[in-house]
Design a protein around this nucleic acid. Structure first.
Lengths: 157, 157
DNA sequence: TGATCGGAGATCATTATAGTCTCCGACTAG
DNA sequence: CTAGTCGGAGACTATAATGATCTCCGATCA
């Protein structure tokens, strides 16, 4: 049902936390360690550790080893999009299996597949949506999100 | 990675097929049976059967029993949205676990959760996106069993 | 009335996810 | 310089979701 994984959830929470410490705080140079976040949000410590390592490897946060070590944002919160976070944890966004098929790989249905093109379009729209929202937007008051619907016509919920 | 299930894929293909038979054909009253679709798209017959049953129960298609039986659309292709199809197969769209929490149900993180609100917003945007695209829209660019006409499609990222 | 269809339930296999455990190496405070 | 604190990394287990299969039933109509 188009669900994002728990790990991504944790990543978002952690980044949100790190960002808010880093900005709204009296101790701007302060780094945040894994344990602090895990306890604050009831996240399994070692799982969160993995998540933060992923984020570190993809260059969103930087790590400090040793006592008093921890993480801090590697760039401005405005330069970190939801899409980037998601892809950093779950890999490339793919709404369908054939989204990232290499040349020569085909699904069983490819031969007469009638939905690939429209689905890729939907995927692209979702990607844009996620790529237009930044960590900064999640922090406080600036929710935006504009919708690019590929077509017209609408119904109700 | 925000993937839709194979079953939903199959549902989309099947509906697309049924719709294109029903409209662009010389035999407008014709119903389409499960086997025909399964063979055309290489879908496991009995899995497709389940999918079509779901679609039938949620009122998108109607079934005809007996020999020469099959399915046909229950309403206009313009009145069937991607969101409806998806929810019909996978249940209510929920980008995160807490999307449909009942009163009294809380996730472990709820207490200090800092991402729930923005995520619900994202979810709503995705929903609108999917609800603005209809089966009719999917029919457009890709005629049945022919080469895809490069009309408006093709925006690969 | 029997072959053809959908309806429905149980069941099994496979995969993805969530979570755990253990060991390592880097760092720095003392 | 070294002991305790931290992140880095891999293997591992458990659980849930998905994909797929099998069997039996009831409706329909030539």
């Amino acid at each position: 049902m188009l669900k994002i994984s728990k790990k991504t959830d944790y990543a978002l929470m952690a980044l949100q936390h790190i960002a808010s410490v880093q900005f709204g705080d009296v101790t701007p140079g302060r780094v945040v360690n894994t344990k602090e976040i895990a306890e604050e949000y009831n996240i399994p410590l070692e799982l969160l550790a993995k998540v933060l390592q992923s984020l570190s490897k993809s260059g969103m946060i930087e790590s400090h080893n040793g006592p008093k070590g921890g993480y801090h944002l590697a760039r401005n919160a405005r330069a970190i999009t939801i899409a980037q976070i998601l892809e950093s944890i779950e890999g490339p966004l793919g709404i369908t299996d054939c989204s990232h098929e290499k040349e020569g790989e085909f699904c069983m249905q490819r031969e007469h597949c009638n939905i690939r093109t429209p689905l890729l379009k939907v995927q692209d729209s979702i990607y844009q949506l996620l790529n237009n929202m930044t960590l900064q937007d999640m922090l406080g008051g600036t929710p935006l999100i504009t919708i690019q619907s590929p077509t017209s016509q609408g119904a109700e919920r």
